[in-house]
Design a protein around this nucleic acid. Structure first.
Length: 501
RNA sequence: GGCGCAUUCGUCUAGUGGUCAGGACGUAGCCCUCUCAAGGCUAAAACAGGGGUUCAAAUCCCCUAUGUGCUACCA
């Protein structure tokens, strides 16, 4: 039953990057097509020659792939202009369309007049019934013309797969342009011709196209085409309920990528905007919901974009990643912040250190971009500054005893325990377990003074990092290694002396 | 202005005539814990308003309000 195979299309316009709302439309088309065993067609709607660019087209395609979407066929409207023209001429011949010689100045003036009179906007059909002579006369003078569709009054109905029955009266629709004076088709015309030619069975698009559907159905009928199913997705709004725009923050997939969001998280979040699995599961990969996805389950309410929930999801996916994979993802961000140089990334030693850092911070960060902020301190060879809280801890009498004892025990450990830097195969390093042992030894050595818990850990932490917060202390020690720890303790001790603390 | 679409906790949503209106994010508290996170537990938090229909309405109908979209030789 090949001819019954559902065919979906996704039709972005390359006049900007892939917007988050457009990405969601693409995603739902992909989900629909793939869950129904259908085809997905990517169609670039670049009939606006002035605003469309090749760069945006590439960026959109890259971002779609990055999200994990794929498609079966690819078209560009700018390469199909002849088809639109011949179909328009057919309508012209059949008397269903006509040439309009009105100048844009006249149309502008007409619009202003209608607004000032408070009347419904629209074309006044001036050229609808021009005589043969008038037409030839205009053509002879070389006046530019558009081709307009003759709208006949009738009721238009369609059954939206998401919203149910939607009705319009065509009386509110005036004769609209099919072919612009530069020969390119208008949006509504190109869409209809293409959807028919590409044998599209399901048109799933944004809610902003609901009223266009009325025009398009008239065209489908006039051209003798089969009318596809329609489904309209709600809009994505900003936190204040207004349509999502730049002033709400990032709006394109490229921007989210640069901010350190994972493709899995974005795809997951976007699919949760207007849809929810019956079982209530909220964290999933796209492929895992294909058997649960149904167009009729899509919600019709507008959805407000909630960065907090995206962050939560992103954090979840970061935590799920294997350390090695996370290192690769985090590398560009480290390089961008000048924390490591791109030449270092092939060195096993610095890789090992990044792995340890990634392991230490992966359950702390919500985006990849946050990683350098935390990791920074561990890649500089000294403590950059001391927090007030840290200084307060270092002040206490027992602290200096703990620090000295810790330095003592650390010095005693075997020289075969190397720092990460001198080590290429990641063996013989100061492990977390060993670090933990050393801390415990410090504790038992100072048992008489009853130093344990906070009194034991905090001085060491403060002397090593200048802060009271951070990853588990054994992790901190392991990342820094023996020599770096001793170096930092020395720095702390001279800091205390110099400031007479 | 005309027409269309929408309206359940702050946010995403479940719910399709009878539910203590459920879950998730966020928020608060508690537990875990050297700290920060993560994790676990608990709590506060919603049917836009008004009319109908019905024994019974978040659910069906009407009106109002609010939001949003279209009304282009943009898509």
């Amino acid at each position: 039953m090949e001819q019954n195979k559902p065919r979906f299309r996704f039709a972005p316009s390359p006049t900007g990057g892939l917007h988050i709302g457009t990405a969601r439309t693409a995603l739902f088309n992909w989900l629909s097509a793939r869950s129904m065993g259908g085809d997905l067609i990517l169609r670039i709607e670049d009939t606006d020659l002035k605003r469309s660019t090749k760069e945006y087209e590439e960026s959109i395609i890259n971002d779609l792939k990055w999200l994990g979407l794929n498609w079966d066929e690819f078209y560009r409207q700018s390469e199909r202009l002849n088809l639109y023209k011949s179909e328009a001429e057919r309508l012209l011949k059949e008397g269903k369309a006509y040439m309009c010689f009105c100048s844009s100045e006249r149309l502008e003036a007409l619009k202003d007049k209608l607004i000032s009179e408070g009347k419904p906007l629209g074309y006044d059909n001036k050229c609808r019934n021009l005589s043969e002579d008038e037409i030839n006369d205009n053509l002879g003078k070389g006046i530019e013309y558009t081709i307009r569709f003759k709208v006949n009054p009738k009721e238009i109905k369609f059954n939206d797969l998401i919203r149910g029955e939607i009705k319009f009266s065509s009386e509110v629709i005036s004769d609209f342009v099919l072919i612009k004076s530069d020969g390119t088709p208008s949006y509504n015309f190109a869409v209809v011709v293409d959807d028919n030619d590409m044998r599209i069975t399901h048109v799933l698009r944004g809610e902003d196209h609901i009223t266009n559907t009325a025009r398009q159905i008239m065209l489908f009928e006039s051209l003798g085409y089969k009318i596809p199913y329609f489904a309209h997705l709600s809009m994505i709004l900003g936190k204040d309920g207004a349509k999502l725009s730049k002033r709400h923050g990032s709006t394109t997939i490229t921007q989210f990528k640069e901010e350190g969001y994972l493709n899995e998280a974005i795809a997951n979040y976007l699919s949760l905007l207007s849809w929810a699995p019956r079982d209530g599961e909220e964290i999933f990969y796209l492929n895992d919901i294909l058997n649960k996805f149904k167009i009729s389950d899509i919600s019709k309410n507008p959805a407000i974009f909630d960065v907090d929930k995206l962050n939560w999801l992103n954090g979840n996916y970061i935590r799920k990643k294997a350390n090695e994979e996370l290192v690769e993802l985090v590398l560009p961000f480290l390089i961008k912040e000048n924390i490591i140089k791109s030449i270092d990334i092939n060195e096993q030693a610095s890789r090992n250190k990044i792995i340890k850092c990634v392991d230490a911070f992966k359950d702390k960060i919500k985006t990849l971009a946050e990683f350098p902020v935390y990791a920074k301190d561990f890649f500089s060879d000294k403590i950059s500054y001391y927090d007030e809280d840290a200084i307060n801890i270092l002040k206490s009498d027992t602290s200096i005893k703990v620090i000295n004892m810790f330095a003592n025990k650390l010095t005693q450990i075997s020289d075969s325990i190397k720092t990460i830097k001198d080590n290429t195969d990641n063996s013989n390093i100061l492990t977390e377990d060993l670090a933990k042992e050393i801390i415990n030894e410090v504790g038992s050595s100072l048992q008489a003074e009853n130093i344990k818990g906070k009194l034991l850990y905090m001085p060491i932490r403060a002397s090593l990092t200048g802060k009271v917060h951070g990853p588990d202390l054994p992790k901190v020690i392991s990342i820094l290694g023996k020599e770096e720890c001793l170096k930092r303790i020395n720095q702390t001790i001279s800091f205390l002396n110099n400031n007479k603390i």
